[in-house]
């Protein structure tokens, strides 16, 4: 099968790939765009470290052949603080000690970002379900869930630092 041209919007920028059949979105992001925030933990959709948002849905980018998402809008962790200002969710992860080794962090953030966009009033159960495909082996789940709920609060009140300082 020949390569084909695939057009995407990645973090609000239009990009074009000459994609060989079977090229994954993860490979395209990491090796062609240099967006290395999404990680390859298992390459089989089992760990969630490669999670990005495609058309508002969190997906494991290691399982997405590029040619199947032509024309889609992709968001990665690098796009969350595009203007240099951390998003409430990123700020909550920093303030709430929700990172340890950092390898699962990007995937956690993307799953949680998609959740809070869909459900600004997400409950603890919603958060746990949303990150159930994201493995953290430093076992920092409690801090991560707390941070997501803290960010949801902050987004509702409009000031992340106010909430973080409580």
């Amino acid at each position: 099968m020949p390569s084909r041209i695939v057009t995407l919007t990645v973090n609000d920028q239009d990009v074009e790939f000459l994609a060989k059949p079977g090229t994954t979105l993860l490979t395209a992001l990491r090796e062609h765009l240099g967006l290395t925030g999404a990680k390859r933990g298992c390459a089989q959709g089992g760990c969630g470290a490669c999670t990005v948002i495609v058309d508002d849905r969190p997906v494991p980018s290691c399982l997405i052949p590029l040619e199947t998402i032509d024309g889609s809008a992709v968001r990665t962790v690098e796009g969350l603080a595009a203007d240099g200002e951390l998003s409430p969710l990123q700020q909550a992860f920093v303030d709430g000690f929700a990172t340890q080794c950092g390898y699962c962090t990007a995937g956690m953030l993307m799953s949680a970002t998609a959740l809070l966009e869909e459900r600004p009033n997400a409950t603890r159960e919603d958060v746990i379900r949303a990150i159930s495909g994201n493995v953290c082996r430093c076992t920092g789940y409690a801090a991560i869930v707390d941070a997501v709920l803290m960010a949801a609060d902050a987004q509702r009140t409009g000031d992340a630092r106010l909430v973080a300082a409580e």
């Binding site: 990491r30 090796e31 290395t36 999404a38 962790v77 969350l80 603080a81 990123q90 920093v94 990172t99």
Partner: peptide
Amino acid sequence: PAPRTDARGHVTGQTQFFEDVS
């Protein structure tokens, strides 16, 4: 509590792990 020095790199995807080098 003291802030982790590596947290900002982790949450922005800027922390460089070995496989991020090319």
